[in-house]
Design a protein around this nucleic acid. Sequence first.
DNA 1: CACGCCGAGGTAACCGGTTACCATCACGAC
DNA 2: GTCGTGATGGTAACCGGTTACCTCGGCGTG
Lengths: 355, 355
Amino acid sequence: MSTTMRDVADRAGVSVKTVSNVVNDFPHVRASTRERVLRAIDELGYQMNFTARSLSLGRTGMLTLAVPKLRLPYFAELADEVIGAAEARGYTVLIEQTGGSRAREIELLTSERRRMTDGLILSPSGLQSGDAPQLEAGSPVVLLGERSLHARVHHVVMPNEAGARAVTEHLLATGRRRIALLGYTPGDGEGAGHLRARGFRAALAAAGVEHDEARTVAVPEWTLAAGAQAMRTLLDRGAQVDAVLGLNDVLALGAMRVLFERGLAVPHDVAVAGFDDIEESRFARPSLTTVRPDRAQIARRAVDLLVDGLGRGRSGDGALGDAADAVDAPATAPDPDAPHVADFSLQVRESTARP
Amino acid sequence: MSTTMRDVADRAGVSVKTVSNVVNDFPHVRASTRERVLRAIDELGYQMNFTARSLSLGRTGMLTLAVPKLRLPYFAELADEVIGAAEARGYTVLIEQTGGSRAREIELLTSERRRMTDGLILSPSGLQSGDAPQLEAGSPVVLLGERSLHARVHHVVMPNEAGARAVTEHLLATGRRRIALLGYTPGDGEGAGHLRARGFRAALAAAGVEHDEARTVAVPEWTLAAGAQAMRTLLDRGAQVDAVLGLNDVLALGAMRVLFERGLAVPHDVAVAGFDDIEESRFARPSLTTVRPDRAQIARRAVDLLVDGLGRGRSGDGALGDAADAVDAPATAPDPDAPHVADFSLQVRESTARP
DNA sequence: CACGCCGAGGTAACCGGTTACCATCACGAC
DNA sequence: GTCGTGATGGTAACCGGTTACCTCGGCGTG
């Protein structure tokens, strides 16, 4: 087939061990020998077989990043950061899309595909609290952007609640009182949407402002189209609003588009704010006020947790013993319920200027 | 370490061959035996080692997709499509970012990392015509979105020239005559920008409209920020324009933002059009007229070309012979200079309505 | 001068699968 | 009763690296 290390060894008149020593920069190789080997490699156009190396080494040098949908700018930017952070640690990233479906996420966690890489960074969306066992079995995992699913795995969480609270307080501070909430997704039990909505409600409650649930609109997914549709629904319903909080930026941008179509001026008639600070938000018309999580920090931390944990032996104990002994496992797991919370900052822009 | 096939075999009281037969759905396995093996797999929580399988099979089931920057919506959407197309063929996708640098692209082509997957889909940006040797050596490659680099590799190209020509004709048809061109990138010899610019010029020439080069602005990269900066430059320069063609959508959207800041109405004062039809363009204010390449088709074709070509033995011959014999190689290569050109359609939206 | 140590590099086991080849066994046909 | 045939599954070589262990030669020291 293709040229192997043995071919190189034969041509250089040395053993495979020596070739291996050379390509891996092992110190004790005579300069002349090294030279001969390198020449042979060059002449034969030898390229090492990564798979074989992975097999002996027991590691592949690859990580899997699973996000709901890469075309959502937030996840594209996140992937960018993760790829960068992984590269800094010498890893390459394989990307899977879950579409936000719980079935896909579980399949990813349990399927043998998981063994293709050294670890998994999962940005869950459909996963529920009961799914902990799937998380804990198998190769190392770090969860992203979600609060603990009560599983003994690392997770790096977004400042969902605090961020939503901050942006809501900002809207209140500019005098808005009838604030619509776009993006609650039915069935999103413990997800980001739930937490952001909670931060929103907490801010209103703290300010003594009552929230009319008629101003909350559910969406099937967090996209521009869904945001637009939700805004249409809200306006068609005759809701009176002076502000709109999208649970993420694309929802807010989609809503802004519809406000424009309906002749409502932003921010004069209605203020709009979002969450994520995707790049498009800075260039929108008007530019969008939003919560900016420190994505680079999230990515770096997730990769570091994963890579640092790789040294340790895998957990992978049974997970099949009857539930009787699962009552209170000793604290063997790394940092069970201590999520790493990322920083955030509020980006105030044109879309929430005072009327 | 972890449980292996041998462990399963021992527990089930069979040989590894039988276990292998079971997991690979080999037909001649007695039902009772299969049952025993499956139970053993279940009891041990066995998961196959993908690396070992890849080594014996000689294939990994992974493809590499290399794009300049995932956070550019066009590439995120493309990646989405490629991942989907690959999945349909049973492949998983590993993503690399080149940042559009030629050095990174060449490194990717020549490094051993290339051996990590079965093939490479490269969306080149910095690559030049002289880089053909790097392309031809090593594992299978398909080039995306570029015209032939005169290398004997498959390439799936965007309708760059025809698309640019079509959108320019549209601008002319709405009465615009002083059209600015945003996005020519110095040094982008044969790239998409060059081809799109050519289509633009061809349309003007055909209509007998003269193009003032003072209305052409170079950019360092194709981003929102660069588009905005280019538009500022143009306006500061005092250029008189009644339309702007961005060589891609984000450049156009960045320009629109600046027109808004400067109090110029789109499309009343200035029409704006782009290229790519990213999702944001539909929801922009005003929505952006653009050229929509059939991305799904591009992705599917690229994946199919790569996967179908995988059956065949690798080329990988020398590539080191002196250039003398490179004059006119016989037609041994698959489809040397027959690029697969994707379809496109013109999406006419608000940003180019008649004044 | 004998001994011990270190640098250089060879030999072969091992990583965990796949699979060519072979041995059995049951069953139907002659 | 014997043989051919197909179903079933065992044995071991192989994929292409890494590396534990060993050998050998040269040099410094008591």
